[in-house]
Design a protein around this nucleic acid. Structure first.
Lengths: 112, 112
DNA sequence: TCTATATACATAGAATTACAAAGTATAACG
DNA sequence: CGTTATACTTTGTAATTCTATGTATATAGA
């Protein structure tokens, strides 16, 4: 299982990345993340939905209730222009942090 | 500047990585991180010291006041066996999260 | 000599955030 | 017709973060 802090740090970039590939809804996003991580990352609904609300409030994503003749109502989310910008920023920040970690970890002093 | 959550997620693995290369003390660790990140990551002392205390409480690191004839007292930290194990776990978790992010980000649908 | 800055560590408490738990409702399956 | 899966919401507490404040000494510069 992935640590709490690392999960927290990756939630928004993961959601943005998923939504960039096409609109989706909360329940499906949870399943998608579980699948992509091989079960290592599992969000409860109580964890994910408030994040979606926050992201919508911040203008990163937009929602609409599906009118399509689906079996049940679903709240579909789409990424906004602002959300795409946020995603780029996230990607850049992850690259920077990974660079720092690699600098420290790389001289794999695994001599022992 | 790196986001709050990403900073939080990387603090412990960075400290563990630095200490694996040799013992160090709080003030120096702060400067080291700032240097390695090109100023992108800056910890205040009030942010870092409590983390060190927590890590020591958890048995990941051990401290001792320097008796060496230094200009002023410094609390040197060393990584423990438990800390090295924690570092390995962190590295594995970062790899897993990066894998998920790459899966989502890679099909860089930058067609537009 | 005096002052400002850098070094070095510590912690209380306010502010923020996370998230488990509980709630609502319907569809599908056996 | 009961159980499980689907689908979304929110409250309140628990945990965490980090700002602000405090202590103390060394050093550089004016």
């Amino acid at each position: 299982m992935i640590s709490k802090t690392l999960t927290a740090a990756s939630t928004k970039p993961i959601i943005l990345g998923i939504l960039k590939q096409g609109s989706s809804y909360g329940y499906l996003i949870i399943k998608k993340i579980k699948e992509l991580s091989g079960g290592k990352m599992q969000y409860s609904d109580g964890m994910l939905y408030p994040v979606l609300h926050k992201m919508e409030k911040d203008g990163w994503i937009e929602s609409s209730w599906s009118l399509k003749n689906e079996t049940r109502p679903r709240k579909y989310y789409e990424i906004t222009t602002l959300g795409k910008e946020a995603l780029h920023q996230e990607q850049s920040q992850w690259a920077q942090v990974n660079s720092v970690l690699n600098q420290i970890w790389e001289p794999k002093t695994e001599i022992q």
